[in-house]
Amino acid sequence: MRIALLLALAALFVAFPLAFPWLAFVFTLVISKGFAALGVAVLLRAGLISIGHALFYSLGAYTVAYLSRGAGVTDLILQLAGAVAVSSLVGLIIGLFMVRYRGIFFAMLNLAVSMVFFTLLSKLYALTGGTDGVRIGTPTLFGTTIERDTLESILLYGGLVLAFGVGYLVHRYLKSPMGEALPAVETNEIRLEYLGIAVPRVLLAAYVASAGLAGLGGAMYGLLVGHVSPELAYWTISGQLVLVAVLGGIGGVVGPFVGAFFLEIIRSFAVIYFDNIWNLIIGAGLLIVIFFLPRGLYGLIERATQRGPRR
């Protein structure tokens, strides 16, 4: 049943942009934000709220920019792989420090580090282009030059395939002993230590995975928009990623993508029909989720399709 639901959602992702081409951009943005929000959701399972993942999101996009402009790496797949590698590596370095903290300290430290990164991006003009940002050229694929329109299609459909593949791997990880230990960190960290499990290592693995996912999302965003500026590292983007994860639901892999879909669709239609109040709609949605849907919007979809979650 769950597979059928996922396939139905995927079919919608394929069918709607064919009927309404402008949705291709929005849906690709959904996948991009979904990856980043999934990274945030991995940490939320351990009760750790990061208000700084815009750092890794923007880092993914800047890595793609530098790979194409500075290093001459124009292949799309290599650019995405490079963005994941750089984000994960930076996640490893920052994570070594972060995993020692919990609660508000973890949230604030992530915020602080990401804002330092934002400032560096804004001020180091010679390196980063300052607030003007950096343009990202259209990449090649297996040595073939591709048009901008083709790139959008590749990013949408390739992104969908990637979402299934990466989502499956993250699902396997969350069901592994290391993944199942994440909610255990929140409920009883001391007991984990008394089982001989190194909690900092559990959290470091989650942090690196989380950074890599955010980097992948950011790389997709950069390629889609063709430009990256420091605003992508600003704290409001980090807050948005947390919002998306909570809206969609952190219990599984699909939730963050559902949350991203909700956010981007509301935002897109709001521009046309009810500009200036889209924040109100998102806020109301978040309140409904917090009070009535502990498993987020995806939990609601699951319930509607009669698939009772175990927990």
Partner: peptide, 9 residues
């Protein structure tokens, strides 16, 4: 414990 993709169950 350090199995990344093998299920707990």
């Amino acid at each position: 414990f350090w199995q990344v993709l093998a299920p707990l169950d």
